[in-house]
Computed example of a mutant assay.
Amino acid sequence: MTGTNMNCIIVDDDKISRRIIQNYILKTDFLILIKSCTNAIEAVNILQNEMIQLIFLDVEMPEMNGLEFIKTLEEKPQIILVTAHEKYAVEAFEHNVTDYIVKPISYSRFLKAVTKVKSIYDKHLNHNSGLPYIFVKTDSKLIRINTKDIFYIEALADYVNIITPKEKYVVHSTMKGIESKLPNQLFQRVHRSFIVRLDKINSIDENTLVINDNLIPIGGSYRKKLLTQINLI
């Protein structure tokens, strides 16, 4: 299947289930397993530091069950619930999970679910060609910002800083929200807290890049995609 690869995590307290899903992921060329987690608390830490597009999530787990975990997510990746029980299906789809698989899992059922996820993901990327400008609300006014003027965007709690040569705009938005408005062929998430305009990058080191003398960190799971997006010889 063509298109962009998807980073995923497994969240399941059952060792055998984790192993089965992990093996299925390894057989599926567009999936990259970032971490196999034994509980939701561990998954929260991964989501804070990595770019994840898909979660394989169990429901019945200690400390925090899967449905409780979904409620904590401000920016939800696509989610496939994988559980031994059918009884959670209605509530699961109320939380907009992409699919619901009842254990035991066959590879054919797994592949059907992840193909659906991939189709949704690719449509989102293709749709997000982006306009050459965005409007942002600041001081009760709507301000037009040309995307060609944006150096980078930095997360700041419930706000984002949009950095341009002349101004810094503080806007009430999530990173996912602002990212969805930008042309994806020109802008790249390089860290959970940073989006950069690719043609503004001056240099790239192992874990950082430079834009206009500003040092910006590169998250581990973002580096590979960044290198595929730049015009690397």
Rank of each mutant, 00 (worst) to 15 (best):
R197H: 11
I201M: 04
D213R: 12
S193L: 07
D199N: 15
I178D: 00
K225S: 11
S203R: 14
N202K: 12
Y222V: 00
Y222Q: 00
K225G: 09
V190Q: 05
K200R: 15
S193N: 14
N212H: 14
S203N: 14
K181Q: 14
K200T: 12
L198C: 11
I195N: 03
L186M: 15
L226T: 01
E179I: 05
V210C: 15
I201K: 02
V190W: 07
D213F: 08
I211W: 08
R192G: 04
H191P: 02
G177W: 01
K224I: 01
I178W: 00
E206T: 13
K224E: 03
D213E: 15
V196Y: 05
I211T: 13
T208Q: 14
L215E: 14
S193Y: 11
P183N: 09
L182D: 06
N214L: 08
L186G: 09
R223V: 00
F187G: 06
T208N: 15
F194A: 05
L198Y: 08
G177I: 02
L226F: 06
G219V: 04
V210Y: 12
S221H: 01
K200M: 15
H191I: 00
L198I: 15
Q188M: 14
R192C: 08
E206M: 13
K225N: 13
V196L: 07
Q188Y: 04
N212T: 13
Y222C: 02
L182E: 06
V210I: 15
D213L: 11
S221W: 00
K224L: 03
S193Q: 09
V210Q: 13
I195L: 06
H191V: 00
F187R: 02
I178S: 01
Q188W: 03
V190L: 09
S193D: 13
N202T: 15
N212C: 10
V210P: 10
I216A: 05
I204R: 02
K181R: 13
K225F: 07
F194H: 11
K200H: 15
V196P: 12
G177D: 09
L198N: 10
E179K: 06
K225Y: 09
S180K: 03
D199M: 09
L182M: 05
G219T: 06
G219E: 05
R192W: 06
R189F: 07
F187A: 06
I218K: 08
G177Y: 01
R197Y: 04
R192M: 08
L182K: 02
L186P: 08
I211C: 13
L226P: 05
S221M: 02
L215S: 12
R192N: 11
V190A: 08
S180T: 08
K181G: 06
P217V: 02
I218V: 09
N202L: 09
P183L: 07
N207R: 08
R192P: 10
K181V: 02
G220D: 01
